[in-house]
Design a protein around this nucleic acid. Structure first.
Length: 129
DNA sequence: CTTCTGACA
DNA sequence: TGTCAGAA
């Protein structure tokens, strides 16, 4: 039995943008990247359902974690759109996250090295008495 | 009034 | 990503 019948079925792009703290521009962009597939009405307007709010939330979370739209497009289908929290539900998702984590580890190492170099230069600056 | 697409002094 | 144009 469905206990999901809420009152907020379909909304237009500006509404979804408001509810997700983004802009219509970004939502159209997500769609271009294959992250969203809203249905169209005769008017040509995009229509989103409540689930879209969570999906967009997942997209934003993944984006802020550093994943690219391409990666997100691949793993998004692994996530049941009715999930409130994002958890690894399939091997593909886990792999993508592990990969991104690995990339971050590499970036952190480079940044740490860069900072160490700057520290040495700063320390070695002239007239330091 | 709102959204759509395409484009970028 | 913002923003503007021209159309619906």
């Amino acid at each position: 039995m469905k206990v999901k019948s809420c009152l907020a079925p379909d909304m237009r792009i500006s509404e979804l943008a408001r509810q997700t703290g983004t802009t219509p521009r970004a939502l159209r962009y997500y769609e271009e990247q294959g992250l969203l597939r809203p249905d169209r009405h005769a008017s040509g307007y995009r229509h989103y359902d409540e689930q879209a709010v969570r999906v967009v939330g997942h997209i934003q979370l993944l984006l802020s974690a550093g994943l690219g739209t391409a990666a997100i497009a691949e793993i998004l289908p692994c996530i049941p759109d009715d999930r409130t929290v994002l958890a690894p539900t399939c091997p593909e998702l886990l792999d993508a996250l592990a990969e991104e984590r690995h990339r971050l580890t590499g970036s952190i190492e480079k940044l740490t090295t860069a900072r160490a170099i700057l520290d040495r230069i700063i320390q070695g600056a002239p007239d330091r008495h």
